[in-house]
Amino acid sequence: KLETFPLDVLVNTAAEDLPRGVDPSRKENHLSDEDFKAVFGMTRSAFANLPLWKQQNLKKEKGLF
């Protein structure tokens, strides 16, 4: 399991300012399950079932792209 970080560490943070080991294209993977659901309004599995373009739009909207 990946290390999780608080939302404010990941949202609207440039790649070079992210904690070590965080993939800038997969910031959402480093949210706790609770934060993930609070941000996206759905579970990880529901998010994973969305088309890629919709996932990317949601990530942009939430500052996690």
Rank of each mutant, 00 (worst) to 15 (best):
K1S: 12
K1W: 10
E3G: 08
E3M: 10
E3H: 10
T4C: 10
T4Y: 14
T4H: 09
T4D: 04
T4P: 07
F5I: 07
F5D: 02
F5W: 11
F5Y: 15
P6S: 06
P6N: 04
P6K: 02
P6F: 02
P6Y: 02
L7G: 03
L7V: 09
L7E: 05
L7H: 05
L7R: 05
D8R: 08
D8P: 06
D8N: 12
D8Q: 11
V9Q: 10
V9A: 09
V9Y: 15
V9N: 05
V9H: 07
V9M: 15
V9E: 07
L10M: 05
L10G: 04
L10V: 03
L10N: 02
L10W: 01
V11F: 07
V11A: 11
V11Q: 12
V11D: 03
V11H: 05
V11T: 08
N12I: 06
N12Y: 04
N12D: 09
N12A: 09
T13A: 13
T13L: 11
T13S: 14
T13V: 14
A14H: 12
A14D: 11
A14Q: 10
A15G: 09
A15V: 14
A15M: 12
A15Q: 10
A15H: 11
A15N: 15
E16H: 12
E16T: 10
D17Y: 08
D17T: 08
D17F: 09
D17L: 11
D17E: 13
D17V: 07
L18G: 05
L18H: 04
L18K: 02
L18E: 04
P19M: 04
P19K: 02
R20Q: 14
G21T: 09
G21V: 07
G21K: 05
V22N: 03
V22G: 02
V22E: 02
V22Q: 02
D23C: 10
D23I: 06
P24D: 06
P24T: 06
P24H: 07
S25K: 13
S25D: 15
S25Q: 15
S25P: 03
R26Y: 11
R26L: 07
R26W: 08
R26T: 08
K27E: 03
K27M: 15
K27W: 05
E28N: 02
E28W: 01
E28G: 02
E28Q: 05
E28R: 02
E28V: 04
N29G: 09
N29P: 03
N29C: 12
N29D: 15
N29M: 15
N29E: 15
N29K: 11
N29Y: 10
H30E: 04
H30I: 04
H30W: 12
H30L: 06
L31I: 09
L31D: 01
L31H: 01
L31T: 01
S32H: 04
S32W: 01
S32P: 01
D33M: 04
D33A: 07
D33C: 06
D33S: 05
E34I: 10
E34H: 10
E34A: 12
E34L: 09
D35I: 05
D35A: 07
D35H: 04
D35P: 00
F36K: 00
F36E: 00
K37Q: 14
K37P: 01
K37M: 15
K37E: 15
K37D: 13
K37I: 14
K37W: 15
A38H: 12
A38G: 08
A38V: 12
A38D: 11
A38Q: 13
V39A: 08
V39S: 04
V39L: 12
F40V: 01
F40A: 00
F40Q: 00
G41W: 02
G41R: 06
G41C: 09
G41D: 09
M42L: 06
M42F: 02
M42A: 00
T43F: 05
T43P: 09
R44Q: 07
R44H: 06
R44T: 02
R44L: 05
S45R: 12
S45P: 09
S45W: 10
A46Y: 08
A46P: 00
A46T: 10
F47V: 00
F47E: 00
F47Q: 00
F47L: 01
F47C: 00
A48W: 09
A48L: 10
A48T: 10
A48C: 12
A48P: 00
A48Y: 14
A48Q: 14
A48S: 11
N49S: 14
N49A: 13
N49H: 11
N49C: 15
N49I: 12
L50K: 01
L50F: 05
L50D: 00
L50V: 01
L50S: 01
P51F: 01
P51G: 04
L52D: 11
L52Y: 13
L52F: 13
L52T: 08
W53V: 09
W53E: 13
W53D: 11
K54S: 11
K54W: 11
Q55C: 01
Q55A: 04
Q55I: 02
Q55T: 01
Q55F: 00
Q56E: 14
Q56K: 10
Q56T: 13
N57T: 13
N57D: 15
L58K: 04
L58A: 04
L58Q: 02
L58I: 11
L58G: 00
K59Y: 06
K59V: 07
K60N: 07
E61Q: 11
E61M: 12
E61V: 09
E61W: 07
E61P: 01
E61S: 09
K62G: 03
K62W: 05
K62C: 08
G63Q: 05
G63T: 01
G63Y: 05
L64S: 02
L64G: 03
F65P: 06
F65R: 08
F65K: 08
F65N: 14
